[in-house]
């Protein structure tokens, strides 16, 4: 499994990915990345960098090298299964159209 962003071997400070919750009730969304020596500083740097204009009420940071991503080369196969399974979506069911509360 590839671990995206793990180029930090020669870099002094590792790379961190930043996720910001813009307001209560919403998910944390990827905002960008930054460099920091450790998680304590990473979360502070994230606050200083990504919330200068009231963009957030909560911040997550995760070391980029700790992220496990799906394999880009297997993209076609990996995401093939949902294709053709339209019955997972409400729009597939046309006969009940017009019936209230359905």
């Amino acid at each position: 499994m590839p671990s995206p962003g793990d180029s930090g071997a020669r870099e002094q400070w590792p790379l961190w990915e930043v996720f910001v919750r813009s307001s209560r009730g919403l998910s944390h969304v990827h905002a960008g990345s930054l460099h920091a020596p450790d998680e304590t500083m990473a979360v502070r740097n994230a606050r200083d960098l990504y919330t200068r204009r009231n963009e957030g009420v909560s911040v997550w940071v995760v070391r980029a090298s700790d992220i496990t991503a799906s394999d880009p080369d297997a993209k076609g196969a990996f995401f093939e299964s949902p294709q053709g399974k339209d019955f997972r979506h409400a729009i597939y069911y046309t006969k009940s159209e017009g019936v209230a509360h359905l």
Binding site: W13, H35, A36, M41, N45, D48, L49
Partner: peptide, 11 residues
């Protein structure tokens, strides 16, 4: 000493 710290001191 680093961009992140430049921004922190600026704040």
């Amino acid at each position: 000493p680093e961009l992140e710290e430049d921004i922190a001191l600026g704040n």
